[in-house]
Design a protein around this nucleic acid. Structure first.
Lengths: 244, 244
DNA sequence: CGGATCTTTGATCACAGTCAAAAAGCGTGG
DNA sequence: CCACGCTTTTTGACTGTGATCAAAGATCCG
C-alpha cells in the first residue's frame, strides 16, 4: 500500500493547494516514522538535520530551565511541523525536547531536502509560512490570556479549542493527552489544574478521569470570554457562536 | 528633499535586500505620517485599509477586555509594521488600538497597493514574513517567560532588550516610553513594576525617573537568565556575552 | 503656580505555587 | 483475576507573589 493511500494527506495543511503530482513527490521523499507514547523524537541540543510533519497523534515540545523545571512550548498535532524554526533559521541544534504525547505517525524529511523543495515550490513555502504565522498569533493570544484569564478560564478556553480542533462533541469527549501535559501547556501546575477543574463544575463542565462533558457550550463560552480581550476576533469563539 | 534622503530606509528590515530602484518605488508609494505622543493612529474596530511601517518613534498596540482592562499586545519600533495581520488575513477591521508611545514618523500605504507589491516583489514578501515569524517567536518567548520568570527578572530582561534594540549604553540610558506602558507590555500592574524596580537595585540596576543605569550587565544577565528556559538560544543574551 | 497625570508607597487580599500525603488509575506478572 | 508497584491525580495546609484599593509624592505642562 503506498503512502498516499495510507495517509489522508489532504488533512495536512502544508500540502494544501499542491497539485497531485507534486504532492506525490513530496510524499515519496518522506520517511514514515512511528512513535509510541512517551517516546522521544529528539532532545534539546541534539544536532538537527531533520524536519517532521505530524500525520497522526500529538508531539509534546518542551524544554527545561537551568533549575530543571519543565516548560511546554507547544503540543503539535496533525498537520503541525517540527523543526521548522531550526530549518528556517539555520540552527544546527534542536531547541527543545520532542516527546510523543500519544502514539504518533510522522513524515520525516532531511532538512536540506525540504529546504530545496521550499525554494522551488512556492505554494509549499507559503503554506509553511502561513502555519508559522498562525502559530505566532496563537502564541500572542496565549500570552494575552495569561494576563487576562484566571486558571479555570484558561482551561475552559483550552477545552473549547480541543473541541474545535478535533471536532469533538462538547457533550462527551476524551482528553487526548494527560492532565499534567495540559497543565504544563497552559503554564500552570498539575495541582492548580486539578483544583481549577472543580471550579469549572459551577459552569457545567464535568471531568471524570479523561472524560469531559461540557453541558452548555454557551455558558462556558460566556464564562471564559467575559474577561478576554480577544473577544470578537477569536476564531475559537466565532466557531461556537455559529456552529457548523 | 526627497523621502529617500530624509529617512534611513536601510534601517527598515522590510526593505532589506531590495534593489535601489524597487526601494525608490516603494518609498514613492508611501505617504508620510507624523504622530505626536499619545495620538491615536487607529482604533480597535476601525475599518482597515491602511498598512504602516514605523520609521521613527514607537507605537503602542493595545486592546481592551470587556471589563475595560487595557492589554498591551506590542510596542512597535523602527522597522516594525502595523496592520500586517489584518492585511494578510483579509480582515476589514483593525484588531487593536494603536497609539504613539512617543513622537513618530510612519510610512503609510493603502493595503491594496501593498498587497500588490507583495505579490510581485518576492523579497519584500519574504521580509514581511520574516518579520512576522520573528514576532511570533518573540511572543512565544514572552509567554514562556511569563511562567518562568518573576516580575523583577522580566523587567531586567526587558531592559537588556532595550539596550540591544536601541544600542543603548547599559551604563546610562533613558527609558523610551512611560513606565506604565512598559509595565503593561510586560503584563503587570504599574505598582508591581515600581516595586520590582527597587528589587533590581540588589543586582545593580538603578532607575531614577526615566534614567536607567545597569552597573554590571553580566550580573544582571545572570540574575535574569538563572531561571529562564531559553538560555543558550536567546539572541538577547548571546549579544551580551560577546558584545559587538 | 495650579491642575492634571504618572509614579511610588502602604496595607490587604486572592490566587496559584510548593511541599507532603492520600487516593485513584495503570500495567505487569504471578 | 487479583496483587503489587508505579505513575498520575487529587486533596490539604501553608507560603509567596502580585493584584487591588487608597493615598501621598513627583512630574509635567499650560
Amino acid at each position: 500500500m503506498s503512502i498516499s493511500t495510507t495517509y489522508p494527506t489532504d488533512k495536512l495543511s502544508l500540502f494544501f493547494d499542491i497539485p497531485a503530482t507534486d504532492r506525490t513527490r513530496l510524499l515519496a521523499g518522506a520517511k514514515i516514522r512511528y512513535l509510541k507514547k512517551n517516546e522521544h523524537l529528539f532532545h534539546h541540543g541534539d544536532p538537527c538535520s531533520t524536519f517532521f510533519i505530524v500525520a497522526e497523534g500529538a508531539v509534546h515540545l518542551h524544554r527545561q530551565t537551568p533549575e530543571g523545571r519543565d516548560i511546554t512550548l507547544h503540543i503539535a498535532i496533525i498537520g503541525d511541523t517540527l523543526g521548522e524554526e531550526e530549518m528556517l533559521a539555520n540552527k544546527v541544534l534542536y531547541q527543545a525536547d520532542a516527546v510523543a504525547a500519544e502514539n504518533c505517525t510522522l513524515l520525516e524529511y532531511p532538512t536540506e531536502w525540504m529546504r530545496q523543495q521550499l525554494q522551488t515550490n512556492h505554494t509549499l513555502a507559503l503554506n509553511l509560512l502561513t502555519a508559522i504565522s498562525k502559530r505566532g498569533s496563537r502564541a500572542l493570544m496565549d500570552r494575552e490570556q495569561m494576563v487576562t484569564l484566571k486558571t479555570p478560564q484558561r482551561i475552559g478556553c483550552f477545552l473549547m479549542q480541543l473541541c474545535s480542533m478535533y471536532q469533538f462533541d462538547p457533550k462527551k469527549f476524551t482528553l487526548p493527552y494527560s492532565k499534567s501535559t495540559i497543565a504544563s501547556k497552559l503554564g500552570m501546575e498539575p495541582e492548580s489544574f486539578s483544583r481549577a477543574l472543580s471550579k469549572l463544575k459551577e459552569v457545567g463542565v464535568t471531568v471524570e478521569g479523561m472524560h469531559v462533558c461540557i453541558h452548555d457550550l454557551n455558558v462556558l463560552n460566556q464564562y471564559v470570554c467575559a474577561t478576554c480581550s480577544i473577544s470578537e476576533d477569536c476564531e475559537n469563539c466565532s466557531n461556537i457562536k455559529r456552529p457548523a
